[in-house]
Design a protein around this nucleic acid. Structure first.
Length: 192
DNA sequence: ACGCTGATGAAG
DNA sequence: TTCATCAGCGTT
């Protein structure tokens, strides 16, 4: 069972500046209930995708059937298939109507959750691996992380010093011109 | 450095 | 309806 001090992040957490949300997601715990088991991993790598002007964002082409979720309420999951075989988990941020999200790129197993049984002893360094480990697919697209009990993000009091956060350019967005250089990828320097 | 793989969105 | 393009990963 999840320890009592795990607090599910409320919608207000996500309804803020995307970079603030992204940095504060570092050290938080993604909790997944799957087939009666709990899988919990601590986030150590994220990326911000902000607005239609961001040429690296899926929303750069405006509202489409796929990107409509990014314009939706904060706290909803945006899950998409990439390269035909991997899923990526994002969480929608900012106020409804403004397209922005944080991509959860990396995490490590949270101890004491019997995760070893589930084969999560290896670091989940990459959004595809993370989704595979947490059994996240397009079935979780549009899920409300502020309400769901099967997939949400929790604060367990783990503190990440701002000094431990490094900002770098985002991964895999070379096509985005000058936006590819923006330091909108945030990583914890020394893993939790 | 490359192939796998299929949804997506733009073009026609 | 086709077609190029991909917010990744594992193997070479």
């Amino acid at each position: 069972m999840i320890r009592d001090r795990y607090k599910k992040l409320p919608r207000e957490f996500y309804a803020r500046d995307t970079h603030a949300v992204a940095k504060e997601l570092l050290g938080k715990v993604v909790v997944r209930q799957w087939r009666g088991k709990t899988i919990a991993v601590r986030i150590n790598e994220v990326e911000s995708y902000v607005g239609e002007d961001d040429q690296a964002s899926h929303a750069s082409r405006g509202r489409t059937p796929r990107t409509a979720i990014m314009y939706g309420p904060p706290g909803l999951a945006y899950v998409y298939l990439i390269y035909g075989m991997y899923y990526c988990l994002n969480v929608v941020t900012e106020k409804e109507g403004y397209p922005a999200a944080v991509l959860i790129r990396g995490a490590v197993m949270e101890s004491g959750m019997r995760n070893q049984e589930l084969g999560l002893e290896k670091p989940l360094n990459g959004p595809g691996k993370l989704c595979r480990a947490l059994h996240i697919t397009s079935a979780q697209n549009r899920l409300d992380l502020a309400r769901s009990d099967t997939l949400y993000i929790a604060d367990d009091g783990f503190a990440v010093s701002p000094r431990a956060i490094t900002a770098t350019p985002r991964v895999g967005v070379d096509y985005a011109g000058e936006h590819a250089l923006l330091p909108w990828r945030y990583v914890i320097q020394n893993e939790p």
